[in-house]
Amino acid sequence: TYTYKLTDEEASRRAEDEWRNRGYDVRVRNNNGTWEVEVR
């Protein structure tokens, strides 16, 4: 499981799409203004 911490929502969406396209399960959540993109 990888977790990315990003401050930019758009960057988190791009990361989400990119990993999803590669067949990974992705979750995005906002934690106090930081976007966490979790990849498994």
Results as ranks from 00 to 15, higher is better:
5 K>D: 13
20 R>E: 03
7 T>L: 14
22 R>A: 10
21 N>I: 08
23 G>Q: 01
12 S>F: 08
6 L>F: 15
30 N>Y: 15
36 E>F: 13
1 T>Q: 09
15 A>T: 11
2 Y>G: 07
39 V>S: 00
35 W>L: 03
9 E>G: 05
1 T>M: 10
23 G>C: 09
22 R>T: 03
39 V>K: 00
26 V>I: 04
2 Y>V: 15
22 R>K: 12
14 R>D: 06
5 K>A: 12
13 R>C: 05
34 T>S: 10
14 R>S: 08
18 E>S: 09
34 T>Y: 13
10 E>H: 07
3 T>I: 15
10 E>Y: 09
12 S>Y: 07
36 E>I: 13
35 W>H: 01
19 W>M: 04
10 E>S: 09
3 T>A: 04
5 K>T: 15
20 R>I: 07
33 G>L: 02
8 D>W: 04
24 Y>A: 04
13 R>A: 07
25 D>G: 04
1 T>Y: 15
28 V>L: 05
36 E>T: 08
24 Y>N: 02
28 V>T: 05
17 D>K: 14
36 E>A: 03
39 V>I: 12
19 W>L: 07
23 G>H: 03
27 R>A: 11
2 Y>K: 14
12 S>K: 05
21 N>V: 07
9 E>F: 09
37 V>S: 00
26 V>L: 00
34 T>L: 12
5 K>Q: 15
29 R>D: 04
4 Y>C: 12
24 Y>W: 06
7 T>F: 14
13 R>S: 05
32 N>G: 11
21 N>E: 12
12 S>A: 15
33 G>H: 03
4 Y>H: 06
1 T>N: 12
29 R>F: 10
25 D>E: 14
28 V>R: 10
30 N>A: 08
28 V>W: 02
1 T>D: 13
18 E>M: 14
30 N>V: 12
36 E>Q: 05
34 T>W: 12
30 N>S: 10
8 D>T: 13
10 E>G: 08
34 T>A: 09
23 G>I: 01
35 W>P: 02
29 R>S: 12
13 R>P: 02
16 E>F: 13
19 W>R: 01
38 E>F: 05
29 R>L: 10
8 D>A: 03
12 S>C: 15
23 G>P: 00
31 N>R: 10
11 A>E: 13
11 A>K: 05
2 Y>E: 11
7 T>C: 15
15 A>R: 04
30 N>E: 13
29 R>T: 14
15 A>K: 10
31 N>W: 06
40 R>T: 12
20 R>P: 01
20 R>G: 04
19 W>V: 01
2 Y>S: 09
35 W>K: 01
21 N>G: 10
15 A>Y: 10
28 V>H: 02
8 D>H: 03
2 Y>P: 12
30 N>K: 10
22 R>W: 06
17 D>T: 14
4 Y>R: 00
21 N>W: 04
4 Y>A: 04
33 G>E: 04
23 G>L: 00
19 W>A: 04
19 W>E: 03
18 E>Q: 10
29 R>N: 08
25 D>F: 07
15 A>W: 10
35 W>A: 01
3 T>C: 15
30 N>T: 07
35 W>M: 02
1 T>V: 13
3 T>Y: 12
30 N>D: 07
20 R>L: 08
27 R>P: 02
11 A>H: 07
16 E>I: 13
17 D>H: 12
11 A>F: 05
22 R>V: 03
29 R>I: 13
35 W>I: 04
13 R>H: 08
32 N>I: 02
21 N>M: 11
23 G>V: 00
24 Y>I: 04
4 Y>S: 04
8 D>Y: 04
22 R>N: 06
37 V>K: 00
33 G>V: 01
40 R>M: 10
1 T>L: 11
23 G>W: 01
5 K>I: 15
24 Y>H: 07
13 R>G: 05
38 E>S: 09
31 N>T: 10
37 V>I: 13
3 T>K: 09
36 E>S: 04
40 R>D: 05
38 E>Q: 09
4 Y>F: 14
12 S>Q: 03
23 G>R: 00
14 R>P: 02
20 R>W: 03
20 R>K: 11
35 W>T: 02
8 D>M: 03
3 T>H: 09
36 E>Y: 14
30 N>H: 12
9 E>N: 03
8 D>E: 06
32 N>H: 07
29 R>A: 07
14 R>W: 07
12 S>E: 03
29 R>C: 08
34 T>M: 12
21 N>H: 09
16 E>G: 09
14 R>N: 08
39 V>C: 14
34 T>P: 01
22 R>I: 06
2 Y>W: 15
26 V>A: 04
24 Y>K: 03
17 D>Q: 14
38 E>G: 01
24 Y>R: 03
33 G>N: 05
9 E>M: 06
13 R>D: 04
37 V>W: 00
40 R>K: 10
27 R>H: 12
8 D>Q: 03
26 V>Q: 01
38 E>A: 05
38 E>M: 09
6 L>D: 07
26 V>M: 00
31 N>S: 08
32 N>S: 06
7 T>P: 15
29 R>K: 10
18 E>D: 10
31 N>E: 08
14 R>K: 12
12 S>L: 10
6 L>I: 08
35 W>S: 01
28 V>F: 03
6 L>R: 00
36 E>D: 04
6 L>W: 09
8 D>R: 00
9 E>R: 05
26 V>T: 05
25 D>W: 09
1 T>P: 09
30 N>W: 12
1 T>F: 14
35 W>Y: 07
22 R>G: 05
3 T>F: 11
4 Y>D: 12
38 E>T: 13
11 A>P: 02
39 V>A: 02
